[in-house]
Amino acid sequence: MTSEFKEGLIEVVQAVLPITAVVILLQVLLISMPWEEFARFLIGVLFVMSGLLLFLQGVKIGLLPMGEAIGAELPKHGSLIFLLFFAFILGYAVTMAEPDVWVLAGYVDTVSEGMVSRYILVLFVALGVAIFVTLAMLRIVLNIPIAYIFAGGYTLILILSYFTPTDFVPISFDAGGVTTGPVTVPFILALGLGVTAVLGGKSSFNDGFGLIGLASIGPVLSVMILGIIYS
């Protein structure tokens, strides 16, 4: 067993053990649900731990190195349009692959009884992430202070919240949250760090981070716009 695998196993145990311990205490001291259901819970915990362990290994072996490699290659072509175009495509594609987004869209589809299609919602969320990942890349290249984009983005959110139907406001903020999932975060962070690594005068610490915060603004705005369209 390699040291990386051992570290991943420890991380998974530390992540899952607290909630498992809480549920066990509740079962013993308070809830006392049928033991068949509790046994299914314990089996589910084992499946979750196995899945997380495999996922973390996949992220370390594949997603992070590939994201950094792509981010390092794109600026070498010397075209800002080329960089921004593929930043948009990658932001869109990685959001479409994010399971958290589909879970949220499925619940919205169910609760709204099909009025808000899961596919339409995922499309708008992905477009929002793609646009703001593109803006994040532009910020890195042009050295725009990140505070300006945050201020502008959240000001626009506050303005749109007055025109968005009440039912869509909480959905829009949840959409911003689910984009910070296990697939999107490592890939976009690695992409940003790869870009800053090859651009002269850029700091990986100052310029490579903040992309996830910027990317989460996009879905909030796009779902609010979707709500206005539905209204």
Score class of each variant (00 low, 15 high):
residue 154 Y to E: 07
residue 145 P to W: 04
residue 151 A to I: 15
residue 167 D to W: 07
residue 162 Y to C: 07
residue 162 Y to D: 02
residue 160 L to V: 09
residue 164 T to D: 02
residue 163 F to L: 07
residue 146 I to L: 14
residue 146 I to N: 04
residue 166 T to V: 14
residue 143 N to Y: 05
residue 163 F to W: 06
residue 140 I to F: 06
residue 167 D to L: 09
residue 163 F to H: 09
residue 140 I to G: 01
residue 165 P to W: 14
residue 160 L to H: 00
residue 160 L to E: 02
residue 142 L to M: 12
residue 143 N to S: 12
residue 153 G to A: 14
residue 152 G to K: 15
residue 140 I to C: 06
residue 146 I to R: 01
residue 141 V to P: 00
residue 160 L to K: 02
residue 139 R to P: 07
residue 152 G to A: 15
residue 157 I to K: 01
residue 155 T to G: 01
residue 167 D to V: 11
residue 143 N to I: 08
residue 148 Y to F: 15
residue 157 I to H: 03
residue 156 L to I: 10
residue 152 G to T: 15
residue 154 Y to K: 05
residue 149 I to P: 07
residue 153 G to T: 05
residue 166 T to C: 09
residue 145 P to C: 11
residue 152 G to R: 14
residue 153 G to P: 05
residue 146 I to T: 14
residue 150 F to P: 02
residue 157 I to L: 04
residue 155 T to M: 09
residue 147 A to R: 09
residue 150 F to K: 03
residue 150 F to I: 12
residue 141 V to K: 04
residue 167 D to A: 09
residue 158 L to W: 06
residue 156 L to Q: 02
residue 140 I to W: 04
residue 161 S to A: 13
residue 148 Y to Q: 07
residue 150 F to Y: 13
residue 163 F to V: 07
residue 143 N to R: 08
residue 163 F to P: 02
residue 164 T to H: 01
residue 139 R to Y: 13
residue 164 T to W: 00
residue 152 G to Y: 15
residue 161 S to K: 00
residue 152 G to I: 14
residue 142 L to K: 08
residue 158 L to C: 14
residue 139 R to T: 11
residue 162 Y to T: 11
residue 156 L to F: 07
residue 165 P to Q: 06
residue 153 G to M: 06
residue 146 I to A: 13
residue 150 F to M: 13
residue 153 G to Y: 03
residue 139 R to H: 11
residue 159 I to F: 10
residue 140 I to L: 11
residue 148 Y to D: 12
residue 155 T to W: 06
residue 166 T to G: 09
residue 163 F to G: 01
residue 157 I to T: 12
residue 167 D to Q: 11
residue 150 F to C: 07
residue 149 I to L: 15
residue 155 T to L: 10
residue 141 V to T: 11
residue 154 Y to R: 00
residue 147 A to G: 12
residue 166 T to E: 12
residue 143 N to E: 10
residue 159 I to K: 01
residue 158 L to H: 02
residue 150 F to V: 12
residue 161 S to C: 06
residue 154 Y to I: 15
residue 165 P to H: 10
